[in-house]
Design a protein around this nucleic acid. Structure first.
Lengths: 218, 218
DNA sequence: GGCGAACCGTAACGTACGGTACGGCTTGCC
DNA sequence: GGCAAGCCGTACCGTACGTTACGGTTCGCC
């Protein structure tokens, strides 16, 4: 289990210039993947390699800082669970689903996940942990309160929020992420994402919705 | 869309010695990941680098051959859809689910997927296509006939087999594969896999099972 | 036995790239 | 103005590794 404490915000203590450099590195990472070179980053960011090494230590440090920098940007608004009814719960779930599909199908996410996957296993850095913590685990942390509010409101029935979340995750993501990571072209239009989000939400409600006052389930 | 024609069996025309070399390369790939070196492969396989280059062209060729070689080994028995009732359908689905979980949580699959993901995007080779074709798409090809047999037998209801398959895929895999690829420890015991397979199957039946003569769904 | 093909082991080559050093420029401070 | 700090651009160094070359050995075949 990774479960790195996620509250520490390492993205501070970055000057504007440093953020600009990391943005350049990020763009290059999206274009070139893990075979980006320090020289290329320096050129793209119009800075010297000496500066890169002074600021980030070494190549792995630069990569880690870049991933964390991007991660710090994707904090999404919390959905609060006040005055919950079936309509607003459904809307929240659809919102989560479509946000998540949007994220995992973005060039940036794909590039970051590719790099992190490539580095996992060769225990040099913890890119995988960072990505996981700011992706899948952050999503769970934001969604679980909604699920539990839904349960308190009598709209959902489940024993374990973690298990319910994982099912929701599966219904939303299905094979999308692995296919994209493996290079499958898979055009996700705005409309397709909306449709998938609605479908996943309905399926989730069919599985975990309380069996009171709704049309015959399925 | 990749959808490389998968029927061509490129694993033939390999001598026993070549298979042994690829097995060595595969073992090394599991241990070292993508940063394995040609020298290491040669040493592990007790062959000369000259031979590696003669047989496989270059490093990418060796990697591709290794991935294809492993892919050719995982052909799983087809399940035929004769005399289908709910019990045998359920058993088939559970079997597929647990086989799939077994595969994606194996060291070999993780290593291969990591390498393929790392190479995707840098269009040099098509490792991603190979992995996808022998993983997710092969699974669909084997499972869809079962789903359609279930529909003909009046046990399942769905409009599109592809969509139904993808939901099943999502219910089975959930977040397991991406977490493993990103380096999350996630011990999947035999028992846990069996439980997950049963749960995913029940959820799938709750969503797509025909509403005749079954106990209250969910 | 002689011969050629295939292959092993190892040495050698070339290069790409991570990392370092250094000269010059700008900026802020005394 | 003088000086120091920070940074850019670039040249430089060392090494790891992909790729090639080559001498020596085995093995099938005549």
């Amino acid at each position: 289990m990774l479960h790195i404490v996620p509250e520490i915000d390492t993205s501070q203590a970055l000057t504007e210039r440093q953020k600009a450099v990391l943005d350049a590195a990020l763009r290059l990472l999206v274009e070139e993947g893990d075979q980006l070179t320090m020289t290329a980053v320096a050129r793209r960011a119009s800075c010297s390699k000496e500066t890169l090494y002074k600021w980030f230590g070494d190549r792995d440090g630069l990569l880690t800082a870049t991933v964390q920098w991007q991660a710090s940007k994707v904090r999404v608004a919390q959905v609060d669970g006040k005055g919950l009814d079936l309509a607003s719960l459904t809307a929240s779930l659809e919102r989560f689903a479509s946000d998540w599909l949007q994220v995992i199908s973005s060039d940036t996410s794909i590039a970051l996940n590719r790099v992190a996957v490539g580095h996992a296993g060769s225990g040099k850095d913890d890119l995988g942990a960072v990505v996981l913590e700011n992706g899948r685990f952050a999503l769970a942390k934001r969604l679980k309160p909604v699920l539990e509010a839904g349960r308190r409101a009598g709209l959902l029935e489940f024993a374990d929020a973690e298990t319910a979340f994982r099912t929701f995750f599966g219904l939303v993501a299905r094979d999308v992420q692995i296919r994209l990571l493996l290079g499958d072209r898979l055009e996700l239009t705005e409309a397709a994402i909306g449709g998938d989000a609605a479908r996943a939400t309905q399926q989730f409600l069919a599985l975990f919705g309380a069996k009171t006052g709704r049309k015959a389930d399925s």
